[in-house]
Design a binder for these strands. Structure first.
Lengths: 226, 226
DNA sequence: CGGGATATTGACTCTTATCAATGCCCGTGG
DNA sequence: CCACGGGCATTGATAAGAGTCAATATCCCG
């Protein structure tokens, strides 16, 4: 596997660096060669149940990682932006599936290769550990959000999170449709829409368009998100 | 830190082994010395915001890891049973707090020491990575539960999870009060109580006492948990 | 045996889901 | 260039699930 919609796989040339946005505890010392793959909108990167053997880094686009219940209910556990790594399930069966939200390029690294004892690759393993620990942290925030926050707080937190990751001017471009946001926040798309309207009412955001949100009052949003 | 209620700290003697219940990918090759600490009911093991420097293994008792919202709402991200490791936040600030649910003994290992390049400790780092990845997996399940399952499904899943971890005869001893279960499942304690009553109605469980549940029909419970 | 903490049960409320009707935006083709 | 069509989003009316508040009940522990 490693997918159908995979496209001309070109070697990804060194220097390899782990994304600075994920602050590895130890700076990288490795330049593994990865495979660059391209995916169209909604294309599957890997599926729940497939054999896993790679970890991925987003080069461009946006990736969603999700799990499904037998009756179709879906929970998105994370969105991944350029520079971020995902797919930490290697050596076994994929525990979730990953899809491109929009046209996306990723580099895939063989997990096995990364773990090879061969040399001083201990730094690589450490960086992977560091990334995994970071993932655990983010999970804790998301668990708190899903378990204990109301719909309005979830939306405020989501917008702030997207803003923090997109940097710049507090104008957030949402790559994903309402339905994806809903499945990420444990809500319905209608509720997502209503809460956005409510935040607009409160003067904390402005909807330039459905997919482009201008955060007018970040402080207030922060207050609302907790 | 590393706590007030810490008690006569005796050295934990080798051989050290990572818990088999967490299947490290690589068998252990290290016997670090840890500090054994004892905690009473509800005693704090570490608090959110404290400097972190240890990872822990439960020797006996039960540990809960949680995060708090400013207004007091609480989300328990995990319960840890004997043999399990927790506290993977080392090198930085604790992102959550951990407390003993009942009188509990843990061994604390210096994170720094575990990561030391000194030798062929690469296996230790790998095992830690393996445990972190396992933690990520469990988080995904919990996210799905919190984001998309109803109260009855959550209770069924919880009981099955506790049963799987306690082994034996489908008689589960719950160390924690209803309030903790509620904060773990993102519910209120009243709802937990009502759903248990409902499961009893359905003939899937029997409440030997408030803290002791007999799973009468595991298959049916499984069907209800999804 | 008594008493405080923990748990259950009930009545009612409130948030969010559900079902349904428009509305809007954008790309396509006439 | 404009009209059409389809996906996506918004808005409304209602329902359902879980929360809240409150009154017992039960279980330990001393």
């Amino acid at each position: 596997m490693l997918t159908q919609s995979a496209v001309p796989q070109t070697a990804y040339e060194p220097p390899f660096t782990f994304p600075s946005s994920q602050k590895p505890a130890v700076s990288n010392s490795l330049a593994p060669v990865g495979l660059v793959m391209s995916f169209g909108r909604n294309a599957e990167i890997y599926a729940e149940g497939e054999i896993s053997g790679y970890v991925y880094r987003v080069l461009s686009g946006v990736v969603r990682v999700s799990k499904l219940l037998p009756d179709g209910r879906r929970q998105i556990s994370a969105f991944h932006m350029p520079g971020e790594m995902f797919g930490f399930e290697a050596g076994e069966i994929h525990y979730a599936s990953a899809e491109a939200v929009i046209p996306t390029k990723v580099v895939a690294f063989k997990w096995e290769g990364l773990l090879d004892v061969g040399s001083k690759q201990i730094n690589v393993v450490r960086e992977l550990l560091s990334l995994a620990v970071l993932g655990l942290r983010r999970s804790q925030d998301h668990l708190l959000l899903l378990g204990r926050k109301n719909a309005l707080e979830r939306l405020a937190a989501f917008l702030l999170q997207m803003d923090a990751r997109s940097g710049l001017s507090h104008v957030v471009d949402l790559a994903m449709p309402r339905h994806d946001i809903a499945d990420y926040l444990g809500l319905t798309l209608e509720t997502v829409s209503r809460m956005l309207a409510e935040l607009k009412e409160a003067g904390t955001i402005k909807l330039e368009s459905a997919r482009r949100v201008h955060l007018l009052d970040v402080a207030k949003l922060k207050a609302m998100s907790a």
